[in-house]
Amino acid sequence: MSPLVLVLILVSLVAFVAGQLLLKHGMASTVTGGFRQRTFLVFILTGTAAMAVSYFLNLGLLQRLDLSYLYPFQGLSVLFIAGAAALLLHEKLTLPLIAGSVLITAGVVLVSIS
């Protein structure tokens, strides 16, 4: 795998995780503030933009790599999102949640390599 492909895979993953966190923060702000406020607009727009970047990087990568090669990296997003949500959004991680996420990741990797 060339260094450029590895960098693109990483950027796509980071953009996906960042996008989910931004969307979550934007939607959480509507619980008390409703939809007509700046926090919602800023976070939904940046979150959607990050998701779009990840989406198109992924499409570009799919032209060069097999889906079964690329997909295990996406499986890792479960672990990254759980970790980032705990660190940045202060969500509580329980042991069953961590164990479940690890099993799901292992399953996704297995589904995609088989």
């Binding site: 329980t94 399953g107 297995l110």
Partner: peptide, 22 residues
């Protein structure tokens, strides 16, 4: 669907069951 893929699907199911507890 290959046997290995069925195993992967089963693993995801187990993981979902664990996540369902929290």
């Amino acid at each position: 669907i290959s046997a290995l893929r069925w195993c992967g699907i089963a693993l995801v199911l187990c993981g979902l069951a664990l996540v369902a507890r929290p």
